[in-house]
């Protein structure tokens, strides 16, 4: 009898395990904490879920959209989803959504902060303040990036040139390539492989 119970229990557990859309064999979901806020990263539940939103569009017009090369630059690592998750779990640095604010407000990847790519493209106070927050120093117009945090950038997808443009602009002013990472798949691949997106709650109007 006990054996039968165990068999039934094992059977039920294995069905439960099979029905899971885990991230990897070891990880079902990941809880991360950014600025005191907890976020859960997981893949969508269920069996027949399809992507039907604007991220299922295949053909963005060129210009400005072209398929991006796998790497932005030799020293900048390209990340996939697991590497993004590790970066967040280990608090390795700042995860940047480089898209325009309107995109970020619709949906983003949990744990990211919005710094639109254009800020990085020119010499401006806003950019300088952000870089100083990252740990860079500017003395007499010369940047010192020796203590800067690592940053990981993404935008809309493999066809989006915004995060690559930001990375290239930062390379130009001496930001170390080793401290920059590029999640090329962006929010499109994030959803295509089944991850849920973070939809920011609109702040209640006073």
């Amino acid at each position: 009898m006990k054996n039968l119970q165990q068999t039934v229990l094992f059977f039920l557990l294995s069905i439960f395990a099979l029905a899971q859309n885990n991230i990897t064999e070891q990880k079902s979901s990941v809880t991360i904490e950014v600025d005191g806020k907890e976020h859960i990263i997981k893949r969508v539940e269920g069996k027949e879920v399809y992507l039907t939103n604007e991220f299922s569009l295949t053909s963005r017009p060129s210009p400005p959209f072209y398929i991006q090369p796998f790497k932005v630059s030799k020293g900048v690592d390209t990340y996939g989803e697991l590497e993004v998750i590790n970066f967040l779990e280990n608090k390795e640095g700042v995860f940047i959504d480089a898209r325009l604010k309107s995109w970020f407000e619709k949906s983003n990847i949990a744990g990211s902060v919005n710094i639109p790519f254009k800020i990085f493209l020119s010499d401006n106070d806003k950019r300088d303040n952000i870089l100083i927050k990252f740990g860079a120093k500017k003395k007499k117009g010369v940047w010192d990036f020796s203590k800067v945090k690592s940053i990981l950038l993404y935008c809309n997808g493999a066809w989006c040139g915004q995060s690559p443009a930001a990375i290239k602009a930062l390379i130009d002013i001496g930001f170390p390539e080793k401290k920059m990472k590029y999640y090329r798949g962006g929010i499109q691949s994030w959803q295509l492989v089944g991850f849920t997106v973070n939809v920011p709650k609109k702040e209640a109007t006073k």
Partner: peptide, 10 residues
């Protein structure tokens, strides 16, 4: 976008 893992893991 719904992929079972174990099986179809990232």
């Amino acid at each position: 976008i719904s992929y079972p893992c174990p099986g179809m893991c990232i």
